[in-house]
Amino acid sequence: MTELHFTDVQRDCLQELVNVAMGQASDKLARYLGTFVHLQVPAIALVEAALLSQHFASRYQQQSATLVSLGFFGDQGLRGETIMLYQLANVGVIAQLLGYSDDAVSEAEMLTDISSVLTTTFLSGLAEQLENSFSYAAPRILSSRDQYFADKLAYTAEQWQLALQVDIRYQLTDYSFNCDMILLIPGEAVLRLRQTLDNILADF
C-alpha cells in the first residue's frame, strides 16, 4: 500500500495554505453577507478515512447532523470530495443571512446552497494557493433529519483513502455557526498534493 503520510514540514505547509485560503474565504463571505465574519484558524488533521465516522458519531451524538457532499476536480490529478457536517438547528442563522427567510425555498435547497457557498469559497482559495483551479460537481445531500448519518459517512469515506479533516468555526457578528468540513482525497491525489507542497517548499 502506498505510504500516504505527510512529513512535518509538508503538514505545516498545508496548514499554512489552508489558513490563507480560510482568510480569503472569510473576507469574501464578510463582504457578501455584509456582516463581520470571523473564521478561526482551522485545525487540520489527516486521518484514515475508515476512522472518520466514529470520530464524528461521538461528536454529533444525539443530534440531527446534516451531511452535504460536493465533489471537486483540479488539474494534475488533484481531486476529491468535501463533506460539510453541521447541526440542522444551526441552519437558520446562516439561512437568514443568505436571505432565505423571505421566500419559500425547500430545506433541501437551503442546505445545498449553504454548503456549496461555504465550501467552494474556501476551496477556490485553496486551489489558488496550490496554483491550481477546481471545478465542482453539484452538491448533494447525503443525510439530513435522520439518525443514520454515521453509517452514511462511513459508506462515503470507505471509497477514499485519506481524509483531511478541517475544523471550521464560523463566527458572525451576532451569531455563531459551527460546522465541520472534511476533505476526502483519494490516494493518488494525496501523492499529487504532496508533490505540490514539495514544489512550494522548494521555492522558499
Binding site: 469574501k28 463571505l29 463582504r31 457578501y32 443568505l98 436571505g99 432565505y100 423571505d102 421566500d103 425555498v105 425547500s106 433541501a108 435547497e109 445545498t112 446552497d113 456549496s116 457557498v117 467552494t120 469559497t121 477556490s124 465542482y136 453539484a138 452538491p139 448533494r140
Partner: peptide, 25 residues
C-alpha cells in the same frame, strides 16, 4: 427572480459556482 438573483449575486460576489437541481426547482 428573487431566487435567481440571490444565486447570481453569490456567483458574482464570491466568484464561486452555484447549482440548482430539478429535484428542488
Amino acid at each position: 427572480l428573487a431566487w435567481l438573483r440571490r444565486k447570481l449575486d453569490s456567483v458574482l460576489h464570491l466568484q464561486v459556482p452555484a447549482f440548482s437541481s430539478w429535484e428542488q426547482r
